[in-house]
Every structure is written in structure tokens, then in C-alpha cells.
Amino acid sequence: MPTIVSVDDSTVPGEGSSRLLLLVSSDNKHIVVEEDIMSRSRFISKQVEGFEATSQRHAILLPFSSFVLNKVIEYCSHYRGYYLLEDDPDAAPPGRSPVREWDQEFLDVDRNMLLRIIKAAHYLEIKSLVGSCARAIADMIRGKTTEEMREILGVENDFTPEEEHSPSSKCTG
């Protein structure tokens, strides 16, 4: 585990109004990123509010690898300055994220990566990314049999044989 690094404002030169943040990934990589790129993340925004309240800025430790973190930063940079309804804390939450072509391409990764990204997005509270990942995962399992779903989701069948044959889980559609 890296120790908390104190970052003095003077050591991180700000560019315009956007200041820089130091993010530390679980593999101890230090990544400097502009604050307003990451403002899409509610988690980061809350941390920044904390900095302003205490006038202390420090690195933000994140429990996932730099590989995943870079991917999330790529997402946030792409939508920098864009308004996405799902990320608006004041708006009524929409049911489903709309289909965004760029997101579909961006999330065209293997299932393990998708799992890591959705975990990271949930941790960072980026609702739009969680929604897009959820859509991508749903697309993977839609139309599959139960056995295929188990394989994709990586879950074990933990039902007892009686439960498995109970008629309650039958679909007529």
C-alpha cells in the first residue's frame, strides 16, 4: 500500500480553472488528471468538496488497477463537458441508459475487463458508465440458456436438485 502523499497546490501546476488531482491505483501507479475530467464521478466530486472544506489536498487512493483506472479516465475524458442525464444528481433517474455508439465501441472488451470497469464505475459513482456497462453485459447474456449464462457470469449452480426442478422458475413466453 502506498502511503498518503500530500500534494501541495504549488507542486501541481493548475491549468486555467481546472486543477489537477493525483489518483493512486491499487498497483501503486500515480496518475495525474484534471479535476473537471473526473467531476463526472460523484465519489471524486465528494472528495474534492472535502479538500475545499479542509484546504488540504491529497492523493485519492483507489482500489483498482491502473489499467482499469486509465480506461475510466478515457471514458470521462471523452464525455468531458457533456451533460449526461444519468449523471445529473438533481435529475429524476432515467430507467435505462440510452444507447450511445461510442460507449458500445469503448466497452467492446472481454467479460473480465467489463466486470472490472463496472465495479470501478460503481465505486466512483459514475452512473452513466454503470448503465452502459450493464447494457453491454445484458447484451452478452441475452438469448442464452441458463447453462451458458452461468459460464458467462462465472457463477456456480448452488441450487439443490429439488429447487432446480421446481415449476416456479418456468417461463411460458
Partner: peptide, 10 residues
Amino acid sequence: KALVSCQATC
């Protein structure tokens, strides 16, 4: 349909 299949996974 997918929901019901998924319900049977675990």
C-alpha cells in the same frame, strides 16, 4: 425470457 433463465443460474 432472459430474466427467467437468469433466475435459474444461482
